[in-house]
């Protein structure tokens, strides 16, 4: 019983830490906001709070949560501790979409969001189609197909960058790839937020099935798991989730990879609370990274710098200390 309590304690601590980070994120920024000013009805403070700070902190919270959950799902379904949204090409697909929009449509927020969303989904569908054509083991072919799509997308991205005007367009593309929560405003986020919440909810419901997908193909089939359809469903859901996050924020590295690992290191096993913990750790990581990104310098810094800065040493630690399993 005591052990059970301790397991959940990680979750509680992490939820509280995430909430604190969320509140801090609302207060930190160029325009100073204090709770007192909000209470006093300072019009400017309220406007900044509603249109900028709150949406940004919400995306930090939900986006980080979604990336953590998606990372957990990818690692479980692919039975690979290094699996991440990149593995089936969603990130690079989204980058191509964003670059395409910046070059040929518009640099404004809405088209870029939409195009990167479509780009990510297209890449994943392509990977799924490629792997379904091939006979034999689905697991390995899906990873291979993902790598093919990923490198294809990288090549396309390179072409687009070559065509871009170095002064303006190339800079926007690069900035998008580095990722930032800086351009989040109230008007941009409702649809994506709904999508993120919906997909997260579905994935939580499907937790038992996701665990079953981690079992080898043949064994899962004899347990009555329709592996083919289920894998596509789960991957589409998690990809939809990732695409709806990074289409607003640009690429955010490491959150999806790290959060599940930390969660598993803390709880030492896979269970539903580990799954949730992974989401909260992702939210915490992204919120902290975003607070640093907007607070540390006078100009806005890309958030990926900080997720990587926090993440890379940890990954090195994981590699050096030898993966915990066995």
């Amino acid at each position: 019983m005591k052990k059970k309590l301790w397991n959940n304690q990680h979750l509680y601590i992490c939820v509280i830490a995430t909430l604190l980070a969320f509140l801090t994120s609302i207060l930190v920024g160029k325009y100073p906001i204090t709770p007192a000013a909000l209470m006093a009805g300072d019009q400017m403070a309220i406007r900044v709070f509603l249109t900028l700070r709150l949406p940004r902190a919400l995306i930090g919270l939900l986006g980080g949560f979604g990336l953590g959950i998606a990372g957990f799902v990818y690692q479980t379904v692919f039975r690979n501790p290094l699996a991440a949204p990149d593995i089936i090409g969603v990130s690079s697909g989204a980058s191509v979409g964003a670059a395409f929009s910046i070059l040929f449509i518009s640099q404004t927020v809405l088209p870029v969001t939409l195009c990167s969303f479509l780009g990510g989904l297209t890449a994943v569908c392509l990977a799924l189609i490629l792997s379904s054509i091939a006979p034999g083991k689905k697991q390995e072919t899906l990873v291979l197909a993902g790598i093919v799509v990923h490198s294809l997308a990288q090549t396309l991205l390179m072409f687009l960058k070559l065509m871009a005007d170095p002064e303006k367009e190339l800079a926007s593309i690069e900035y998008w790839i580095m990722g930032s929560l800086g351009s989040v405003t109230l008007s941009r986020i409702p649809w994506n937020m709904i999508l993120i919440c919906l997909t997260t909810f579905c994935l939580l419901l499907l937790y038992r099935q996701i665990l079953l997908l981690s079992v080898e193909e043949e064994e899962a089939k004899t347990l009555g798991v329709p592996t083919g359809q289920l894998r596509i469903l789960v991957l589409l859901l998690s990809t939809l989730q990732v695409a709806s996050i990074i289409s607003i924020t640009g690429l955010i590295s490491f959150v999806g990879l790290l959060a599940p690992h930390i969660a598993r290191l803390l709880t030492k096993r896979n269970r539903k609370s580990t799954f949730l913990l992974s989401g909260f750790l992702g939210a915490f990581l992204l919120l902290i990274a975003d607070i640093l990104a907007k607070g540390i310098a006078t100009t806005e810094l890309p958030v990926s710098i900080f997720t990587s800065l926090l993440g890379a040493p940890f990954l090195v630690y994981l590699i050096v200390s030898g993966r915990r399993q066995k």
């Binding site: 665990l211 080898e216 193909e217 043949e218 030492k268 096993r269 896979n270 269970r271 399993q325």
Partner: peptide
């Protein structure tokens, strides 16, 4: 050999 490759509890 069972193809369970990620950690989960015996009960699960």
């Amino acid at each position: 050999r069972s193809g369970i490759t990620i950690s989960m509890s015996v009960l699960d």
